[in-house]
Design a protein around this nucleic acid. Structure first.
Length: 268
DNA sequence: ATACCATGAACAG
DNA sequence: TGTTCCTGGTATC
């Protein structure tokens, strides 16, 4: 279930577990991880998240790129590496030093490949600012969104406009800002575009802290809290039949090749 | 047993 | 715009 918050959380975890250690690298099912095994024995220098992309920097200069796509996930094994089961695209193991042994198995990624720092730069150059990064420039998104006739609901999924949002955050950010997803970017006021950025940033940060997508502020609701809302797992509009705030039927339509959800009352 | 759907994105034309 | 690749859970027969 990876949107940007998951990727940044993974980078943080993997940094803590693996950076500075010499790793064994293998790809039991070969395929996408061409050349990964050649990294074996190298030391990992850093793990970087940018939008939905992960970059593993090896001391020798190689950069391993991982994109989870819709289905990818990492599984962590503590202790000696278990025998690989099923389609494991990449296995990273550390166990040759004083630290406890750990193994990370990667399954189902859209991309897992070894490249150079230039390859990494080429990927990053195609991405818009990532609200979870300190070096993000919000003005790039705010300006670019104001220049296009494309629907704002499509722009928020376009990783070259703003990096890290997926379908859940798209629906919920637009809801909180009270904006209809079908409005053209250039028809939004600057204040509205700024609201989208700051809302996205705070939602993503909360997602990293809580290790899950949390978009609902329980104190703001009129009616009684649904059980999911009390646990912080509810959404206002995403994948709902009725609006969590006002109870109106949620509209569902295709936008940016994905199902988009919006409240016709709360989002003008 | 089979179909479909999902928090993603590249590619062809 | 349509097709294709990933995987796993749920719905449908």
């Amino acid at each position: 279930m990876p949107e940007g918050h998951t990727i940044h959380q993974l980078a943080r975890d993997h940094r803590k577990l693996l950076v500075g250690r010499r790793l064994a690298v293998s790809s039991p099912q070969g395929r996408s991880a061409a050349g990964a095994a050649a990294l074996t024995g190298g030391r990992l220098d850093d793990v970087e998240a940018f939008g939905k992309h992960l970059f593993y920097d090896w001391a020798a200069g190689d950069v391993l790129h991982v994109h989870l796509g819709l289905f990818g996930r990492f599984l962590l094994h503590r202790g000696p590496p278990p025998p690989p089961v099923g389609a494991i695209r990449l296995r990273l193991s550390a166990g040759d030093d004083d630290h406890p042994p750990v193994t990370l198995d990667l399954r189902g990624p859209t991309d897992c490949s070894v490249g150079t720092p230039d390859d990494r730069d080429a990927i990053v150059d195609r991405l818009g600012p990532d609200p979870l990064r300190r070096d993000a420039d919000p003005e790039r998104f705010i300006a670019a969104a104001g220049r296009t006739s494309r629907a704002i609901g499509a722009l928020l999924l376009d990783q070259s406009m703003i990096a890290g949002l997926g379908n859940v955050y798209r629906a919920e950010v637009l809801f909180v800002c009270g904006i209809d997803p079908r409005r053209a970017g250039r028809d939004l006021s600057e204040a509205e575009r700024r609201c989208l950025w700051t809302t996205a940033a705070s939602m993503l940060r909360k997602g990293v802290r809580e290790r899950r997508i949390v978009t609902v502020d329980p104190s703001e609701l009129d009616g009684p809290l649904p059980r999911e809302a009390a646990r912080g797992e509810a959404t206002y509009a995403y994948h709902r039949a009725t609006c969590l705030r006002c109870g109106s039927p949620i509209e569902r339509f295709e936008l940016g090749n994905r199902n988009c959800y919006a409240c016709p009352v709360c989002q003008r």
